[in-house]
Design a protein around this nucleic acid. Structure first.
Lengths: 152, 152
DNA sequence: CGAAGAAGGTTGCGTGCGCAAGTAATTGTC
DNA sequence: GACAATTACTTGCGCACGCAACCTTCTTCG
C-alpha cells in the first residue's frame, strides 16, 4: 500500500527538516563570513586538506563537492585570487589541473576550523542526545546510500 | 567540557547530512522539473494553498519561505507570468500586495502534488523505519527551535 | 600509426537570490 | 495636522551556479 499523502509524523519530519536546512545554511554562512569564507569555500579547503599532498584533480573535487565543472572553476577562481588555493598543472596528463592548498590556505583553514566546529555544535547538535546523534548518523547514511542508488 | 573537534559519531552524522541535503535537493528539483516548477515555486504554491483565501501578503510569504523581499518579488514574477499566481492589491493598506493562487495555480499544485509526495517518499523516507521517522521529527523539531532561538 | 571517441577544464549565457537604495503608504509624536 | 520613523514592496547591482558549446589532450581500435 502506498498512500498518496504523508502521515502526520512524516509531515512533521519533512517540514521541520526543510525549515531547518534553510535556516541552518544561512546561519552557518554568517558564522563563516568573518573569515572571508563562504560555506562552499570552506568545503573546498577541507577536502583539499584531507587529500594526498593537499591537492585534488578538478574533476574529483567537483564530484566530491557535488558541483558542476563550471561551478568549480568559478569557485576556485575566487580562492585562487585570494591566494588560498593554487592551480597546478599535471605533468603526466596535460588535460588535468590540480587544485592545491597553499600555505595561506592551510593556515586559513586552521584559523577558521575551531569556530566552524563550534558553529556546527551550536547550530546542529545543540540539544540533541547521544542517541539522537547516533540516529542522525544512521538515518542519513541510509538516505545518502539510497540517494546515490536512485539517480532516476 | 567542550572539545574542539567532532566525535566520530558526530562526524558521521554531519557529513552524511551535508551530503544528503545536497543530493536530495537536486534530485527533487529534477523530479519537479517535468511540471515546469522549481522547488521554490512548489513551496510558494503550497503555502498559498494552505492560506486563508489562498492568498498571503508578500512579507508574510517571504518570512514563511525564508526569502528576502527582493527574492520573493522575483520568484513571484515568474509565477505571475506563467499565470499560477496573481498579485492583488490590498484595499485597506495600499502598501501591501497579496500573492494569490489562481485557478491555474491551484490546478497545477493538484497536478504536481502526488508526484511530489512520491518523490519525498522515494528520496527522503525510503528505507527508514517508523521509529527513525519519529526520531527525525523530534530531532529537527528541536533543531528548528534551537535555530530560531539563536539568531546570534 | 591515424582517426574517432572520450575525458578534463574553461567560457558564454541565462537564472536565482541577497544587499543596498529608492518609492510609496501608514503610523506615531508633538 | 505636519513631520519623522516605520513598513511594504520593487529595482539596480553583483555574485554563484548550471547548461551547452568549445578547446585540448588522452585513449581506443581498426
Amino acid at each position: 500500500m502506498t498512500t498518496t499523502w504523508l502521515s502526520a509524523s512524516e509531515m512533521r519530519a519533512w517540514r521541520n527538516f526543510i525549515e531547518s536546512v534553510s535556516t541552518l545554511t544561512t546561519a552557518m554562512e554568517n558564522d563563516l563570513a568573518p573569515f572571508g569564507l563562504t560555506n562552499g569555500d570552506y568545503e573546498v579547503l577541507v577536502r583539499l586538506s584531507e587529500a594526498e599532498s593537499e591537492r585534488l584533480r578538478m574533476c574529483d573535487l567537483a564530484t566530491a563537492l557535488q558541483l558542476s565543472p563550471s561551478g568549480l572553476t568559478r569557485r576556485l577562481d575566487g580562492l585562487v585570487t585570494t591566494g588560498l588555493v593554487e592551480r597546478v598543472a599535471c605533468p603526466s596528463d596535460r588535460r588535468v589541473m590540480f587544485a592545491a592548498l597553499t600555505p595561506a590556505g592551510h593556515a586559513k583553514l586552521a584559523e577558521a576550523a575551531p569556530d566552524h566546529v563550534a558553529s556546527v555544535r551550536k547550530r546542529f547538535f545543540k540539544g540533541l542526545s547521544h542517541e539522537q546523534v547516533q540516529s542522525l548518523g544512521e538515518i542519513f547514511e541510509t538516505m545518502r546510500a539510497n540517494l546515490t542508488a536512485c539517480p532516476s
